[in-house]
């Protein structure tokens, strides 16, 4: 009996009760959103700090003559390879495979970058030779000041493929 009665009073033709029920729902949703927002914000400060640390990093690779044309040099201290193309131009390639983020080693004999994880292959300019990777290796801006090669690590440059405009000539 009491059950049925209490159900009846819940009918939506009571505007005030209806309003309060909706208000509770909205408040609950707001509280959930707030909770999620705070949760995600917890992750943010660390990210910002890291970005600040990376900003303005200029890596001094060395004098131009140190790098043979047609060679690739690895820098353990920086996440990139310095490639000097056959025509003498420089490219700084990110060592991270654009497929799933493994580090690609330079294979001297085959003159190519071969990813150990999913067998993507890139040529000396970072261009994809073999999938699953679907875009060229990311790069960093290269500057040559007074015969010294410098790489700007503050910004990773995404690209689809290789273009001659990306090469820095000494």
């Amino acid at each position: 009996m009491t059950d049925i009665e209490s159900k009846d009073t819940r009918e939506p033709d009571l505007p005030r009760r209806n309003f309060f029920r909706k208000a509770w729902l909205v408040l609950g949703a707001l509280a959930t959103l707030q909770f999620l927002w705070i949760g995600f914000d917890m992750l943010r400060p660390r990210k910002r700090r890291r970005r600040d640390a990376a900003a303005g990093t200029i890596y001094t690779a060395g004098p131009v003559e140190r790098f043979e044309p047609g060679s690739v040099t690895a820098f353990p201290a920086g996440p990139f390879y310095l490639a000097r193309l056959a025509d003498g131009g420089f490219l700084a390639l990110n060592r991270t495979c654009t497929h799933l983020g493994c580090t690609v080693p330079w294979i001297e004999e085959d003159q190519q970058f071969a990813c150990p994880c999913h067998a993507s292959v890139f040529d000396i300019t970072g261009e994809v030779l073999s999938p699953p990777a679907d875009r060229a290796l990311d790069m960093y801006a290269v500057r040559i000041e007074n015969g010294i090669v410098k790489v700007d690590l503050s910004r990773t440059i995404r690209r689809q493929g290789f273009e001659t405009a990306q090469v820095t000539m000494p």
Partner: peptide, 25 residues
């Protein structure tokens, strides 16, 4: 700085990794 060769997902995700080799991501 150095990925092992080969680098594999945990065994229960290796099926997905194998799919990766055959299909567009």
């Amino acid at each position: 700085g150095m990925s092992p060769n080969p680098a594999k997902a945990p065994w229960y995700f290796v099926g997905f990794q194998e799919l990766q080799i055959h299909f567009h991501p």
